[in-house]
Nucleic acid binder design. Structure first.
Lengths: 135, 135
DNA sequence: CTGTATCCTGCCGGATACTG
DNA sequence: CAGTATCCGGCAGGATACAG
């Protein structure tokens, strides 16, 4: 059932996908992954499985609509697995696919790095603002 | 502009910055970095220094306005260095700061990974679409 | 609880014109 | 070349209601 990423080492020579070209489908996927809610959703799911409303609470500020949309896009791209149980009340669990986990791992690394360097960023901003705002 | 949140929000660990809280300034910076044009701009600059219009050509599809905006945001966050020479004709070079380089490195890793796995993603999409669209 | 459907507004972002 | 200023259309995305 879990027909997952089978370690396809396809096309290491020439790059058929170039995200810098606006016509390339990889750009769309990159935007799903790095988008405003996509990155946070993947980051949250890296911590474990979540139900819909748990995810909503974890990703502070996301609306039902956008969370639903985001999850669908990520599921379609094969990054998120959706497990719906036909119980009453309904229960749906979201988790990462193996591919999704690899992506999320990189994302989480970036997120932690940014969080860690925020003091530097904030200092840069202040410096920038005083230099610009003063004249 | 977003205001600095002095309010301490629930952090999972002892980290002062939690991107999952909507009030945290780290979320704004993450969005600059991972945003539609931010990620591609940092990715391009990872290859070396660029002038404004070189960058415009490299990042296919970006408008003058958005490139300008993106560069300003990244410069303000201390990720991009802007070197303007008062020559005639004017020449402005953009490059990464050390911090920007570290961020871009992770971003480029993610981008390459996504490009590499696009066949898997495309297959997942097709599978998803046939399952959903067929009924 | 887990979502879709609908409406509506703000702002993202493209086009154009202008400046130095 | 390297930008800013302005206009404005489209759509991202929030609020609400409702369905299963």
């Amino acid at each position: 059932m879990e027909e997952t990423a089978t370690e396809t080492v396809t096309a290491p020579a020439d790059l058929p996908f170039d995200v810098f070209s606006k016509a390339c489908p990889s750009r769309g996927t990159l935007e799903h992954v790095t988008g405003r809610w996509g990155s946070l959703t993947l980051g949250a799911l890296y911590e474990g499985g979540f139900r819909f409303n748990e995810l909503r609470r974890r990703v502070d500020g996301v609306s039902e609509k956008m969370l639903s949309q985001t999850l669908h896009a990520l599921e379609r791209d094969g990054l998120v697995h959706r497990d719906a149980r036909p119980t009453n009340p309904p229960r749906v669990d979201y988790s990462l696919t193996p591919l999704g986990r690899e992506v999320a791992e990189r994302l989480v690394g970036l997120i932690h790095f940014m969080e860690d360097r925020m003091p530097t960023v904030l200092a840069a901003r202040e410096s920038y603002d005083t230099a610009r705002g003063a004249r």
